[in-house]
Design a protein around this nucleic acid. Structure first.
Length: 995
RNA sequence: GCGCGGUUAGCUCAGUGGUAGAGCACUUCCUUGACACGGAAGGGGUCAGAGGUUCAAACCCUCUAUCGCGCACCA
């Protein structure tokens, strides 16, 4: 045992056990298992991504949940995989190919050649993040790893497209979409980030035309715009129909400068007369509102900005080919020369930026595929809102009906009918106002799905459910087509035809929408677009499990149990998965959603590549160990709050692992039988104290798990193990352990050589038996503690589980082979407590003892006695003190001797502390700074008196005594008595100083 | 504009009605046989402000200030 290193060295340990777990197939889920199922699907990271702190937080939580579930006896599937991440991956590869000089634009290569490069890239880099997850200790079932572009997965995506198309939910249309000119693709609304931007409001003068179409001298309409370059495509000026200022002008025309084109003045209600001049320039092809107006007024659509963000030929000779930003400058210059700019104001407004390429979004009219969301009502109703959780009938009478207006009456009626037909289904918990949203979730699922649970879903923290339901209540059709090459190609073919644009004016017979290409493929042309990446990710919970086949995996593990993800993808992913779950599986995809916070740096800034403030988790693992990274992250990540991450957190984790290591090392050095039977009659007060503290820790940690409060669990573990076990119990136990042992015994302490060695050489003595019993208690506590820690610290706990020999007498599948399957500790039950005589009353005496130790140490400190110097204490017990307790006091006070003298008469001026157990004296005359000690005690006395007055006031208040619950009243009375006793002790100590 | 969240020790944060907590940092002491990635003792907070509810408020309600986030949006 002396070979055990003094400090924990994680590297070799982590690699060893991860390999072991893989070889033993510990992570592989068995769908035939009789155990209850527990499943999580990983939020698939980008296939070309690298591990960052967000992944660490997210996947640590998933691993903790998975490992805890295994210890709870569940059959666990944590299904991993990666996402092809269309735009991101394509952009990365394009950049690399340009850098290598392979191409300037992907058109140089052509679709097939380019895709070969992307696949090659994926093969080379796609596994990196998976390897990184393994370094973290993630217990994913790697045999089931999936990729969203796997052939089977692609089939699912296509099947879903075809189904939704046939249902009429997917359609193609020419619409104003969010266009990313850098990536040259359409985006969904969710991919546009509105950012407050400092810009200008240009006030442009458009000359009025008279009846003959001639500009009238000095008569202008003034329009205000943030985008002067779009004026090249203007087709009208609009005013509000009720605006008296312009009523006479409606129907007349004005001159569009630069283009020298006559455009009409129209009236439209969209115009806000109060904003600016009340006149709006209308650019139908480049603004959604203007487009809407153009439809109403039958205006032409003049496209002046092309898909690449450059001005088109329609923009006119001086502008064609210019980038939109350059065009803005040039237009303004020209208008200034013509004197047509009235003024330029500074103006702060919101501009949409592409989330991917960070360039301003261009509203762009184009032909795209759209999806009208399916299963919206079920998906909306299934998530519990915070209001739903109130006690039955607990709504205050004046509270407005919840969401009453948001639900259309027919749905409510239908829901109630359904509920009546299916009485076994979940019954609404709330009052009448809440019935509707709850009942909607109980709409009968498609009959083909037999495992429909009809349960509700909960969000943690639940406030996100409001965000969710708000979005669900305001759905707009989803633009699912992307003008990219990397992704699932739209499974639609158009019949080729000479001299006709194949994508327009087609009859139904000319469109083939199916998973398979048409048999006479040569006569058809496939739609070139691919689908939004999220259109594949939304199928993740079941497409990864073999859907549409009813595979054993799917039957056993769908719906999944928990989803762990970031709130930033509620709309992108979570909401869409819920809809897909109901639409294609007839049931919700997961029961609980845990939303992590966002990891920020210690200044509160988001982690980002450009700031360079994102630590590399792998470096942290190399420096501190994976367990340390996990523990440090979890300890500082409360439910629902952002995490301000600091390397110090990981350092704390490392220190903690080292503490755990050394505590076990200490146990090893004691030798003796491993996990021997505990003999109740030999238990000391300290033993009972730590067993009760362990019991409380088990309860608290288990409760924290149930509430998904992982930081609370880690903090409880930290406190229990470091403060209670190491600082107090281990130190106190040395009173028993470090009694002189015989030479023959010393040698027997080499447990590694003979783990089950009985200490049979020495003749049995009372001390030996007590020593063995203390070791048994230590083993009991440590073997439980290791299990409590395992979900957080998988590696070190496995190493110690084996190193300490705690696996030895467990069944192979219950901790014998690995701690992973050891049963989760249960609170100590009544039988156990009865057998070992554990009673909360033991806590008081031991607490008082430890309190006396602290006070005694403080005396030393006040007396400037170095910690190392042994001094003699005298103890005057108030009631008989056991020899064991006396020994503990002596040891913890680092006393040379502790003289127990019930009749002790201290000299005047002897520093003294008083406690429930008795009085402790430090007879070291002249060593104490009497004046300073007096000041300290007086200060303490003031504080105590303050507390006494406060408590007395409360207790003398008849309102308090009559209205407070008896238990609280009693607590206060007890507290007062305690403070009074304390006051007396301090006063006595003060008097003792009055030499 | 609407919604959500934060404001507690020097720093980062826990703490949902009944005696204000942790880690780090700080002061002093200690390399004693698990651990200096350690041990001991200690200093430090009118819980952003104001009002209200209550016997009792960091906690519940209202308002204000301030920081952050999301949604919507009129050029």
């Amino acid at each position: 045992m002396s070979e055990i290193p003094k400090a924990y060295e994680p590297q070799a340990v982590e690699e060893k056990w991860y390999d072991f777990w893989l070889k033993q197939n510990c992570f592989t889920a068995n769908p035939e298992s009789a155990k209850p199922a527990y499943s999580i699907v990983i939020p698939p990271p980008n296939v070309t991504g690298m591990l960052h702190m967000g992944h660490v937080l997210n996947n640590t939580i998933q691993d903790i949940l998975a490992r805890k579930a295994r210890m709870d006896g569940k059959e666990v599937l944590w299904l991993p995989g990666t996402d092809h991440a269309g735009i991101a991956t394509q952009a990365v590869v394009e950049k690399a190919l340009r850098k290598q000089g392979v191409m300037k634009h992907r058109d140089d290569l052509g679709r097939e050649k380019f895709l070969e490069h992307v696949w090659a890239w994926k093969e080379k880099h796609g596994g990196i993040i998976i390897q990184q997850l393994k370094k973290m200790g993630c217990s994913c079932d790697w045999t089931r790893e999936r990729f969203t572009m796997d052939p089977a997965y692609s089939q699912c995506v296509q099947k879903v497209f075809v189904e939704l198309y046939k249902k009429g939910l997917i359609y193609r249309g020419k619409r104003m979409v969010n266009w990313d000119p850098a990536a040259r693709t359409a985006l969904s609304d969710e991919e546009v980030e509105m950012t407050e931007t400092k810009g200008h409001l240009w006030h442009l003068k458009y000359p009025l035309l008279d009846d003959k179409g001639q500009p009238k001298a000095d008569e202008f309409l003034v329009v205000a715009t943030t985008r002067p370059e779009t004026m090249l495509g203007d087709e009208a000026v609009a005013v509000n129909p009720t605006d008296p200022r312009y009523a006479a002008l409606v129907g007349r025309r004005c001159l569009l400068p630069l283009q020298n084109k006559s455009i009409p003045i129209i009236a439209d209600e969209l115009v806000d007369p109060k904003f600016g001049t009340g006149c709006v320039k209308v650019t139908p092809a480049h603004d959604p509102n203007d487009y809407a107006m153009a439809m109403r007024h039958d205006l032409p659509l003049t496209v002046v900005i092309g898909p690449d963000g450059r001005m088109t030929g329609e923009a006119g000779g001086g502008f064609a080919g210019l980038d939109r930003a350059e065009a803005r400058k040039t237009v303004v210059e020209h208008l200034e020369k013509l004197g047509l700019i009235l003024k330029i104001e500074d103006y702060v407004h919101n501009v949409g930026y592409s989330q991917r390429t960070n360039v301003p979004i261009e509203p762009y009219l184009s032909e795209q595929w759209f999806l009208k969301y399916p299963s919206v009502e079920k998906a909306t109703g299934c998530v519990e809102l915070p209001e739903d959780k109130g006690a039955p009938g607990g709504n205050s009478p004046d509270a407005p009906p919840v969401e009453a207006t948001a639900r259309p009456a027919p749905d409510a009626q239908e829901a109630i009918d359904t509920k009546a037909l299916v009485p076994a289904l979940h019954v609404a918990k709330g009052s009448a106002g809440q019935t509707t949203p709850i009942a909607i979730s109980n709409l009968t699922p498609s009959p083909s799905e037999s495992n429909a649970s009809s349960e509700r879903m909960r969000f943690y923290p639940d406030r996100w459910s409001k965000t969710y339901s708000h979005w669900m209540g305001n759905l707009r059709d989803w633009c699912i087509s992307r003008q990219l090459w990397w992704g699932h190609r739209v499974p639609v073919w158009y019949r080729k035809s000479e001299g006709r644009n194949p994508k327009t004016e087609l009859s139904a017979a000319d469109i083939h929408c199916a998973v398979e290409a048409p048999t006479d493929a040569e006569n058809w042309e496939q739609d070139p677009d691919v689908l939004d990446t999220w259109f594949s990710s939304w199928l993740w919970p079941f497409a990864t499990m073999g859907w549409p086949e009813q595979t054993p995996t799917l039957k056993k593990f769908y719906p999944t149990s928990d989803l762990v993800t970031g709130p930033d993808i509620i709309f992108f992913w979570v909401a869409r998965m819920i809809m897909a779950g109901y639409e294609f599986m007839g049931d919700l995809p997961f029961r609980n959603v845990y939303f992590t916070g966002i990891i920020r740096d210690k200044q509160g800034r988001k982690m980002s590549k450009s700031l360079g403030n994102s630590p590399d988790p792998l470096e942290l693992i190399a420096k501190y160990g994976a367990d340390a990274l996990r523990f440090g992250t979890m300890r500082s990540a409360p439910l629902g709050q952002d995490v301000l991450f600091d390397d110090k957190d990981v350092e704390l984790g490392r220190n903690f692992c080292n503490k755990l290591w050394n505590a076990c090392r200490f146990r090893q050095m004691q030798g003796g039988e491993v996990q021997a039977e505990i003999e109740p009659s030999l238990l000391t007060g300290d033993d009972k104290w730590i067993l009760l503290k362990l019991d409380q820790a088990i309860r608290d940690i288990t409760a924290a798990f149930e509430a998904y409060r992982f930081n609370e669990a880690t903090q409880t573990l930290y406190r229990f193990f470091w403060s209670e076990y190491c600082d107090w119990y281990v130190e106190a136990s040395k009173a028993v352990l470090s009694r002189p042992v015989e030479a023959s015994e010393r040698q027997s302490v080499k447990a590694e050589d003979a783990p089950t060695l009985q200490r049979s050489n020495a003749p049995p003595s009372a001390d030996d038996a007590r020593r063995a019993n203390t070791i048994a208690v230590i083993d009991f506590v440590l073997s439980h503690t290791l299990r409590l820690f395992h979900p957080f610290l998988p590696f070190i706990t496995e190493e110690l589980w084996h190193g300490m020999g705690y696996h030895a007498d467990m069944p192979a599948d219950q901790g014998g082979a690995t701690i992973m399957f050891a049963p989760w500790p249960k609170p100590l039950d009544d039988d156990f407590r009865g057998h070992y005589g554990l009673d909360a009353s033991h806590l008081d005496v031991v607490n008082a003892k430890y309190d006396l130790v602290t006070q005694g140490r403080n005396l030393r400190r006040e007396g400037n006695i170095p910690s190392s110097k042994k001094v003699k204490f005298v103890f005057k017990p108030a009631k008989p003190l056991s020899p064991h307790d006396a020994e503990v006091l002596k040891l913890l006070l680092n006393a040379e001797a502790l003289e127990v003298d019930p009749a002790h008469q201290p000299q005047k001026g002897t520093p003294t502390v008083h406690s429930e157990l008795g009085d402790l004296y430090l007879p070291m005359e002249g060593l104490i700074d009497v004046a300073a000690e007096k000041v300290r005690l007086s200060k303490e006395l003031d504080k105590i008196n303050g507390e006494i007055i406060r408590t007395e006031q409360k207790l003398s208040n008849p309102n308090f005594t009559s209205k407070a619950p008896p238990q609280v009243l009693q607590e206060h009375q007890q507290r007062l008595a305690e403070w009074q006793a304390k006051r007396d002790r301090v006063q006595k100590a003060l008097e003792a100083l009055q030499g």
